[in-house]
Design a protein around this nucleic acid. Structure first.
Lengths: 343, 343
DNA sequence: TTGTAAGCGTTATCAC
DNA sequence: GTGATAACGCTTACAA
């Protein structure tokens, strides 16, 4: 049943030509006459020839493959990133090796090594919550493999090429909007502050409050994660303490989901009893009731810029120097955080 | 800046040994004495050696890679499939090449060819809505590359290895449940019937209705897609015709989302005015209001079985014969489809 | 215990 | 226009 794959050599033998001729013909090399090229191609088709990409890559010392490292797959944000990175790769005739760190720095390191070993031409990565040892990344660069960080980036970032959203500015914009609406009792359910997205969103919150001379209630500034259970638990904690704010700024959309669920369970209503806004824009937010307002971070833009930099870097090689790009966010107002409801 | 990658040869020269010795030592081959092995490893570390996987694979004629072809990435179902396939691959020391057909049969074919060319050891695929030419799949099998279809499978399937959910049975279960509740005016917003999931869910609906002697209103049996806009449009169509049923069985969760949105927009309420149930269980369904009941299809089970079959097939090679496995669904009752609300 | 030779399938280089 | 040779980096079989 199993047929050995047909190789250049097989075709060469059949036609009494050399493998080189076949190889060239199949790649439309001008060396070979149109006539023989045509002949060769037809025989290749007939035999069902498929090039062995591993052999080709070995010879070319280039894989036409880009590696992607993300913390999670089944997640609206990373799902979108993966999809658009993939699209761009595909359009440029690159394959993509997908790799998931599951928020483990150790796995992340291992993946990076594997990607190097697979001789990917470039790497796009969103680091884990716990990544602190940056030497792995230096190592990648030393190998001459372009790497760009997307959304979650190492700090300090000056030696690396990064694209991210203006996390601080986005958070600031949202809080300022809320303040203008009349909100004063504002909480922040934040992620981990050892990673840029957690830290910057928190400081956007802080700065906006301070700039408007609103005192920050420390018991309303929580830290602890990016998932829905964290949102749920945090809300319940405040609820049980009878210490609810008027508005919660959730560090991510899943955290907001957890809040929705908790609010529902205790019989309160959004936005009348308590209001919510979050960082991150998932399509389903439109379908929640009320539809959830948020700070949108364009995954398409992020991916596009990241890939552009990778490609540019691949071409330039030596003379490419690290750069950090930050893109703007957009405040998307839906059903929540539209007006202040308390007296 | 760019350093040439260090090879076995480099280590060999440095130690005045042969590449073979190095190769063996690094793989802990018993041939080599513990002492030299240790020495070699330390030098390898020091030099920052990374094996060239392409070379290794070329030599081994095996890539330790599995290829995955899905119609979409940023989609709760495929996202979950990708994630669990990836996990299993990773646990077994396989890499994964991810490939997306975007519902285009042409792209699908191209991807399959690329995966063959990349010498993947196995392929897992969920076919597009429009796939009708099965010869590509035969070709893959002829090449001796194990391929298993997951969820969306070709028909007839008897020559292929497939895993899917009991689509017909799941739909039947849901409709029967609704009928027992007292529902009679039931609509089905169905997908395309040229693909098994669309066809089978529809026939589950039909069979349940027929078995319970409930007449099917043809204007309530729609066909047209798997996305939210289709759900939205279909609802609006019936609404404008003043031809609403009491319950809509949506072929997928996104279709149900579209219905939620439309219902909200026209000011009706779920489940009091109109009720909904759907095929497919996304985590967010818990966070909708009301939480959406559904027929759950276990992505973990699907992936696990698919991968088991791939691995088994990889080992057995010649003597492996196609099989079709169908796994059970589970009715998950949340806020919708729990009781009949009309008079 | 270590090394030699050959091969995996392709491509670049340089002759013919 | 076509082909021989060497090389890409690794592994297996077989000697030494």
């Amino acid at each position: 049943m199993r047929e050995r794959a047909v190789t250049l050599n097989d075709i060469a033998k059949k036609l009494n030509l050399s493998t080189v001729t076949i190889s060239k013909a199949l790649r439309n090399h001008p060396d070979i006459s149109p006539k023989t090229t045509k002949l060769i191609k037809s025989v290749a088709d007939e035999l069902g020839y498929t090039p062995n990409i591993m052999a080709r890559n070995l010879s070319a010392r280039k894989s036409n493959t880009i590696g992607l490292v993300v913390p999670k797959i089944a997640h609206f944000f990373f799902g979108a990133i993966i999809e658009s990175v993939y699209d761009i790769a595909f359009q440029n005739n690159y394959e993509m090796i997908l790799t998931v760190s599951q928020e483990s720095a150790e796995r992340e390191k291992k993946h990076l090594q594997t990607l190097l070993a697979m001789k990917v031409d470039g790497i796009i990565i969103s680091i884990t919550q716990e990544t602190s040892d940056l030497s792995v990344f230096d190592m990648v660069e030393r190998r001459g493999v372009p790497i760009v960080f997307i959304d979650r980036v190492p700090e300090p970032a000056n030696n690396f090429t990064t694209v991210k959203v203006d996390d601080r500015g986005g958070a600031y914009k949202a809080i300022e909007h809320a303040i203008n609406l009349g909100y004063r009792k504002i909480a922040h359910f934040g992620g981990y502050t050892n990673i840029n997205i957690g830290k910057d969103r928190l400081s956007g919150f802080r700065d906006a409050m301070n700039d408007h001379n609103i005192e920050i209630n420390p018991s309303w500034v929580l830290e602890g994660g990016f998932g829905d259970n964290y949102g749920y638990d945090s809300f319940m904690k405040l609820y049980n303490e009878k210490n609810l704010p008027d508005l919660i700024f959730a560090v991510t959309y899943p955290v907001a989901l957890g809040i929705y669920q908790a609010v529902n369970e205790v019989g309160l209503r959004i936005p009348e009893d308590i209001d919510v806004i979050c960082f991150g824009n998932a399509k389903v937010q439109n379908f929640l009731s009320p539809p959830l307002s948020c700070i949108d971070q364009s995954t398409d833009q992020l991916s596009k810029i990241a890939m552009d930099m990778i490609f540019e870097n691949i071409e330039k090689k030596e003379e490419y120097s690290p750069r950090q790009v930050v893109i703007d966010t957009e405040l998307v107002l839906r059903g929540t955080c539209r007006k202040f409801n308390k007296e």
